[in-house]
Nucleic acid binder design. Sequence first.
DNA 1: TTGTACGCGTTATCAA
DNA 2: TTGATAACGCGTACAA
Lengths: 336, 336
Amino acid sequence: MDNINIKKMAKELNISTSTISRAFNGSPDINKDTKEKILAFAREHNFLPNHYASNLRDKKSHTLAVIVPEIANDFFSQAINGIEEVARKKGFYILLYRTDDIFEKEVSFVNYLNNGKADGIIMSVSGEASDHNYLKKLSQKNVPVVFFDRVYEDIEAAKVTTNDYDSSFAATEHLIETGCQKIAYLVVNKSISIGKVRMQGYIDALQKHHIPFDDNLVIDCSNDEKVNYNILSKVLTEIKPDGIFSSVERLAFATYYVCNDLGIDIPGTLKVISFSSLGIAPLLCPALSTITQPAYEMGIKAATLLFEELEKKGQVHHKKEHVLKSKLYIRKSSGG
Amino acid sequence: MDNINIKKMAKELNISTSTISRAFNGSPDINKDTKEKILAFAREHNFLPNHYASNLRDKKSHTLAVIVPEIANDFFSQAINGIEEVARKKGFYILLYRTDDIFEKEVSFVNYLNNGKADGIIMSVSGEASDHNYLKKLSQKNVPVVFFDRVYEDIEAAKVTTNDYDSSFAATEHLIETGCQKIAYLVVNKSISIGKVRMQGYIDALQKHHIPFDDNLVIDCSNDEKVNYNILSKVLTEIKPDGIFSSVERLAFATYYVCNDLGIDIPGTLKVISFSSLGIAPLLCPALSTITQPAYEMGIKAATLLFEELEKKGQVHHKKEHVLKSKLYIRKSSGG
DNA sequence: TTGTACGCGTTATCAA
DNA sequence: TTGATAACGCGTACAA
């Protein structure tokens, strides 16, 4: 009564289970009338094939795992949107997991996926430089991985990133050209590859303009808002930079808050530019200059690549790095 | 070689499959040494029990489906965070689905979940007032549902909402007290219950202060940014309200953009207040007055309720409505 | 404490 | 076009 299944239907309809199965899988080997009869009966009895049984049979879950450091974040939520868009078109579903930038969580979830729970993984990594063996296990099980934005260089997989070096260089140069001589670089975790790349653009731009690089101007922040507020308060009152290049949106906001409280004028006393996917950057006080990554497009691209791998199974297929372009928006906060 | 499973391990180790199974399920009926031997072997050979087989056996997926209108949105992404938080503690995973406010997508996904793909569902509905039969089917299959924020009144299920009526009343009253006489109410879809409730608070506040309700001041907007821009441009130039009460964050942003372009002074000429979960509302130009829903807490609450139902199976359990309180933040945009 | 044997619900293969 | 049957990989009575 409660649990209808293919067998019970078979009995009721005096039809074999195979035929019923065929009715649900678009098989051509079935009489139109039989099929309709079956589907009608199914509708009436609220029956749908059980996914776990199907998955167990053909070892496909039609599910994609998406692993991100945070969800409540303009960049990642837009990227997830892009991924979802593609997945839906393919009839796939999204298993979402947040790591909070904690390496252990990443490892535990990836391990959990190591057994058929998802057909593939799209991830932006927590960034720990340690042992990435847990990821290598996946390829043993033919679970393809695509990285986006934050990647592990030592893992061979498709990667979707943006031209971070160029953007950082351009942003830093822009600050210099508007008159900044003492530009602080704000970063959350220097060791993450993305933090390093962005910093290199900053360093090289300084060099090009003969401004000596000062390690004290590299401000290593945390994920805790209050801690960041304190760090930045100290920096702005003691080191007194005249420009801020923030590698992470959140730190630009923190800078704004500190400036509001300390009465520091942006862009008069301090010019600010930041990596950010915030849609309403123009509405800030003052409008925030941004390097905006094509988050949605990155999601689309990552998902597309994953499906290519999923579908090209068997063929030798060289993993690639795909670099999309960020856009520089000069606004009031940097004197634009 | 490739595919290790319980049987192969059994052969290799000269142990029965049941014992191996026991090693993975915290069964007390197993010798410590045997267990360790098994787990060691499993680690070495990168084995984990297959989820689909397990799920098929005990008809539990340890997965929660989360259905929301949009993901890239401050309210929903924070709510998802809350849900994820609870789910993780319970060892559950999140299947995420976005409806884009399109009723058909909601129906199709819910139907898809109707066969064991998820143990329970947490959703914020698209709001169509039509036939909600697809949801009733779920209870037949013992898949509990919890609504949050946007609910269907006619479905019996746990519901987590906020005190929207009171908040709307308070916000409107606040605008009146700062001198507004011609307050426009911005809404995306009047027919959604949440839009109606919020509007009622607005209407009643007007009435209390003897301001006649004017239907022309109820501005029905869309989900398309450009369309909204045009609608609001027209409203602000032709109807010229002196206050805006926006039931949706997005429309407040649109108002800001229009005001920027038309040179309308906020709060001088126009006062603005909006429902919004934007963390950086204080950083806007001018700082945006908001009614802020406890999005994260709502997620927590919704997930907690779902697990209660999941665990209390069998017991009669009255569905309840849980109302959390929003907070009113008066800032510059409304003359604060 | 361990092993045997069956079934979870589906689908692919083969035969009719 | 349809049906019988054997897997898919696991967990759980039940027996030992």
